[in-house]
Amino acid sequence: MADVVEVFRSPHVLEYPYVRSTGPIVGGYLSGLRDGKILGATGAAGRVIVPPTEYDPDTAEELSELVEVGPGGVVTTWAWVSDPREDAPLSEPFAWALVQPDGADTGILTPVAASGPDAMASGMRVTASFLPSAERQGRVQDLRCFVPEEAS
């Protein structure tokens, strides 16, 4: 008998095709993005958390008040993607970053569209770039990316 082992390979897609309500806090954030606004939640000691969480990450206190932050902000850390994956939010080379919008105390995970790694730095100012209003659907992708402030 030939010493050949044929390995069976087949695609397997696992899906959870359910929907759920996003509620007043997360839903409020996504509705805000649809309207071209970034909303954060006021947490313990006045700390503004964005994206808003339903509870304060430090004290577990339930949060309910949403406030508008941004659209400008500061890059707190970044990573340069020279070869974007097929599923990346931008098809050209870009930076993943945490951006702390003006008026907020935490960072949003977001792509930053910049010309290259030399155009990126922690502490640089950026501003939000939304999809055209007709294309927004109340989802996180409505906030397409941030761009360097001088380029906006």
């Binding site: 996003t22 997360v26 954030y29 996504l30 994206p51 707190t76 850390t77 970044w78 990573a79 340069w80 993607v81 994956r85 599923d87 990346a88 939010p89 993943w96 970053a97 945490l98 949003i108 995970l109 977001t110 792509p111 922690s122 989802r139 996180v140 992708q141």
Partner: peptide
């Protein structure tokens, strides 16, 4: 699943954010 997952950030890029910090 609402604010990060739909952007499909890869684990290497996320670790790179931590490295930069």
């Amino acid at each position: 699943p609402y604010t990060m997952g739909p952007l499909w950030p890869d684990q290497v890029s996320l670790a790179a954010l931590q490295a930069r910090a």
